[in-house]
Simulated assay, not measured.
Amino acid sequence: MNSRGSAGTHVSVAHRGALDLEHHLKTTKHQMGVRGVENSGSLSGYFIQPGSRIQSNVTAGEGTLAFHAVKHHFSYLSMDCTPGLMKQVYSDSEIARKMTCARTKTEAIVIAPHGVEMVMEAMRSISHCGVSTDASNHGSVKMFPLLIQYFDWKSGGLQTKVIDLQSLADETAAMIASYITGILEDKDILQKCVAFSGDNCNTNFGGLRRGDGNVFANLKRSVNPNLIGIGCPAHILNNCIQHGADRLSVGIDSNRVEDI
């Protein structure tokens, strides 16, 4: 006669009956099996039923976490451990146990397709906009957020919206200009772009001599020959002070030098 233990093991009780079961319960194999069963969760516990109330709560929680990370300028890398930490701290919460909001998902939530669609819908009634981008280094990855700025009186005035975020291999003017042009074409607002804004580095505007190898010159050829270039006021002021200070003549009082 055979009996199945709680850990799925077959135990023979043909010789000593209940004593066989008692002996099996004391074995290391049985005790390890029981601990394994207790620590293992059901596979269904890892999935959320579509359209259920818990799905709505989990989605809202993940969106809130993503918003919190961006609002306080947290690194996306921190989101790899935050949901796991919440599972430990709030172990009795079904919402916390089912939240999976690491950096990849956080990025997708921040630049959500629905949000971009809303901006593009608003742009249907807007005739002009400006575009800007700048490199942000995250370790060895160069991230280029692409922003557009436009005036929408229905939404309260001047609007600044992120419409794309990509990593580029380098910061060459041709690659940045191609990236901007491609996104504007994809969003069907290329003809509405009348201005380009960026910091005053040589890659964007070409320095004092301008030239035709910078981002601004490339965009004038591919987007709009009458494109307006808008530099950073803080950088302009800094450059003015720097170059002005370099050209100041500094007088030396020889009598004062001798006293020293």
Score class of each variant (00 low, 15 high):
15 H>T: 14
15 H>G: 08
15 H>R: 14
15 H>D: 14
16 R>C: 11
19 L>Q: 14
20 D>T: 04
21 L>S: 06
21 L>P: 01
22 E>G: 06
22 E>I: 11
23 H>D: 14
23 H>Y: 11
24 H>Y: 13
25 L>D: 13
26 K>Q: 10
27 T>L: 07
27 T>K: 13
27 T>G: 09
27 T>A: 07
27 T>S: 14
28 T>R: 13
28 T>P: 07
30 H>G: 05
31 Q>G: 00
31 Q>D: 09
31 Q>K: 15
34 V>Q: 07
36 G>P: 00
36 G>A: 00
37 V>H: 12
37 V>M: 13
39 N>Y: 12
41 G>H: 12
41 G>Y: 10
41 G>A: 09
41 G>I: 08
43 L>C: 04
43 L>F: 05
44 S>R: 08
45 G>V: 05
46 Y>T: 05
48 I>V: 14
49 Q>I: 05
50 P>R: 06
50 P>Y: 06
51 G>S: 08
51 G>E: 07
51 G>T: 06
52 S>T: 04
53 R>N: 12
53 R>T: 12
54 I>H: 04
55 Q>V: 08
56 S>M: 10
57 N>D: 11
57 N>E: 13
57 N>L: 10
57 N>Q: 13
58 V>P: 02
58 V>T: 05
59 T>N: 13
60 A>Q: 07
61 G>P: 01
61 G>N: 04
61 G>R: 03
62 E>Q: 13
62 E>C: 07
63 G>L: 07
64 T>C: 04
65 L>Y: 02
65 L>S: 01
67 F>N: 07
69 A>H: 03
69 A>Y: 01
71 K>D: 00
73 H>R: 13
73 H>Y: 10
73 H>W: 04
75 S>G: 15
76 Y>P: 08
77 L>C: 09
78 S>N: 11
78 S>T: 10
79 M>V: 02
79 M>Y: 03
80 D>R: 02
80 D>N: 08
80 D>E: 08
82 T>F: 07
85 L>K: 09
86 M>Y: 10
86 M>A: 11
87 K>H: 08
88 Q>G: 01
89 V>M: 15
89 V>W: 14
93 S>M: 02
93 S>R: 04
93 S>L: 03
94 E>A: 06
95 I>Y: 02
95 I>G: 01
98 K>F: 00
98 K>C: 03
100 T>E: 11
100 T>R: 14
100 T>H: 14
101 C>P: 01
101 C>K: 02
102 A>P: 05
103 R>N: 07
105 K>Y: 02
105 K>H: 05
106 T>P: 01
106 T>M: 04
107 E>P: 01
110 V>E: 07
112 A>Q: 15
112 A>L: 15
114 H>D: 09
115 G>W: 03
117 E>Y: 06
118 M>K: 12
120 M>I: 08
120 M>C: 14
125 S>P: 00
126 I>D: 09
127 S>M: 12
128 H>K: 12
128 H>Q: 12
129 C>Y: 04
131 V>D: 02
131 V>L: 08
132 S>H: 02
132 S>T: 10
133 T>N: 03
134 D>L: 04
134 D>Q: 04
135 A>T: 13
135 A>V: 10
137 N>Y: 14
138 H>P: 06
139 G>F: 10
140 S>G: 00
141 V>D: 15
141 V>H: 15
141 V>G: 08
141 V>I: 15
142 K>M: 11
143 M>S: 09
143 M>N: 11
143 M>H: 11
145 P>N: 07
146 L>M: 11
147 L>A: 05
